[in-house]
């Protein structure tokens, strides 16, 4: 029961501070995974890859997966509800408040949040990179994928399938 409460609380917090959606969730989850010993960084990266090739957002996918690992099916339900509850609460408040058009306050706050979020994601990518790029082949994969992402429109699903094959052949 205590574990379920902790799961709900943790993912509620992750949902509450995950402004901007998507990858901002990565530093937030990383922080808790390490603290609670719920999964390794390697396992977390596997999960991000799974989230890229399945429908749905990284935050919801992470909650479902971590919840299942920690407390089975019930854990996955509790964690998933935890991560969407802040959206529901804040969303309903904002929808009711801005029923007649939009103000400029949220826009202004977001202007200052965005660089902080970028710093967090970059920091996360930095520490994850350092712990994971331990061989020449890993470094090559990392550099080539980064160049592909920056300079081409290649689909992430294609990259994941290709690097999986490279892993099977050379790993």
């Amino acid at each position: 029961m205590l574990t379920l409460l902790k799961l709900f609380g943790t993912f509620f917090e992750i949902g509450l501070f995950g402004f901007g959606g998507g990858y901002v969730i990565i530093p937030l989850i990383q922080e808790h995974l390490v603290k609670n010993n719920w999964m390794s960084i390697e396992e977390f990266l596997n999960l991000v890859a799974i989230a890229e090739v399945t429908p749905g957002s990284i935050s919801v996918n992470s909650a479902t997966y971590v919840g299942y690992k920690v407390y089975g099916v019930l854990g996955s339900v509790v964690a998933t509800l935890g991560v969407i509850s802040p959206s529901l609460i804040v969303g309903l408040l904002i929808a009711a408040f801005f029923k007649n058009g939009t103000g400029n306050t949220p826009q202004n706050i977001l202007k200052f949040l965005a660089p902080a979020v970028i710093g967090l994601i970059l920091g996360s990518g930095f520490t994850i990179g350092i712990t994971n790029i331990t061989s020449l082949i890993n470094l090559l994969i990392f550099v080539i994928v980064l160049l592909l992402l920056v300079f081409t429109d290649v689909n992430p699903i294609v990259i994941i399938i290709a690097t999986a094959l490279i892993g099977i052949v050379f790993g």
Binding site: G22, Y23, N46, V145
Partner: peptide, 24 residues
């Protein structure tokens, strides 16, 4: 086999994360 596949994917995911920061 699965673990080998993921070992190839993980450095790519690290690149995804850095790219997310870049594109934002």
């Amino acid at each position: 086999l699965l673990e080998k596949a993921f070992s190839g994917i993980r450095p790519a995911v690290a690149a995804f994360i850095l790219y997310a920061a870049f594109s934002l």
